[in-house]
Design a protein around this nucleic acid. Sequence first.
DNA 1: TCACCTTGCCTAAGGCACTTAGGTAAATGC
DNA 2: GCATTTACCTAAGTGCCTTAGGCAAGGTGA
Lengths: 189, 189
Amino acid sequence: MSRAGVTPERLVRAGADLADEVGFDQVTVSALARQFDVKVPSLYAHVEGSRDLRTRIALLALDELADLGAAALAGRAGKAALSALGDVYRDYARAHPGRYAATRMRLDPATAAAGAGPRHAELLRAILRGYQLSETDQTHAVRLIGSTFHGYLSLELAGGFDHSSPDSQQSWTRIMDALDSLLRNWPAQ
Amino acid sequence: MSRAGVTPERLVRAGADLADEVGFDQVTVSALARQFDVKVPSLYAHVEGSRDLRTRIALLALDELADLGAAALAGRAGKAALSALGDVYRDYARAHPGRYAATRMRLDPATAAAGAGPRHAELLRAILRGYQLSETDQTHAVRLIGSTFHGYLSLELAGGFDHSSPDSQQSWTRIMDALDSLLRNWPAQ
DNA sequence: TCACCTTGCCTAAGGCACTTAGGTAAATGC
DNA sequence: GCATTTACCTAAGTGCCTTAGGCAAGGTGA
């Protein structure tokens, strides 16, 4: 029998694509085995199992997203940087809903720390250098912006804004305005 | 054989409790059958299946949460109202992580509209009456605050703020300050 | 009171996913 | 050319979801 050429990388890539098509939680070892025209147990030579596979997809997505974010921030500051990063997240979430859902997976702390998670926090901190915030307030602001981005995209992907006006794009733009305004007028303790 | 006294209500209640203990996606028809000391297929007389069960848990949680929110808003306005509602969500999410996760489940539009979902939007709108915003900006603000609440709680529950300082409570308080400030100084178009 | 019907629970059975153990054949390296 | 590694296989056990069909307990009407 000829070899199918399965590698961890191809598996993870195919898993990520599958997630984008049918949803992250429909990504299954079995589905991938079918796709590679291979029996299910064969995949256990390449990934440790279902959870490992998902974890790797999450790490891939986090990495891709951090790369895009870093590229978008180059040469931008202040509101332009904020909007650019927001749009990177939003465009990514809409173009790759499965990968984006993967980034929301709960990773164990060691794995998370070894992946691109910290880079994301770093990107947000970089944006905040354009605003005048104390060290502590920077942390609060990172958490606020991260929460708002993630919350908005999660609600938008869930269809929460689908059947009401104004459309989601308008709210998104105004929310960027609002966050910028908030950062420029950050309330004193 | 004696009857176990299974009803849809008890099932859903037990399912919600189980979700809080072991996580919403560990809630399974099988686990509930074990808990009621009944064979799995017996439950199909009471709920239509796994998805139906989860949906009902989600609706229960949304309902409980809307009740708590409405109670917290009574007699409060402005920042007090904003903080009170935020705390209701946050306390609920921390006390009932499984139920809270259930509220994030994607429901089909008809079910969502029939449940307590709209009441939640109404609660946010009620808060915004204490601030001077145009009709359209109210919608944007509802989406912003909803996103921030949901995003923050989701990150917090995922342990995202666990091993860093300042602690999550401080950020939460400051974020309430920031949102209040933002609503009082909402940027013009 | 008794026959009847509804209803709550059962067994049987099929499907799909995950995982481990152990075998075989293809590729690789000496 | 032979040994080793590697990629894939079959077999087998577990768990969950779901449908179909049966039986008996509890309430209902004559």
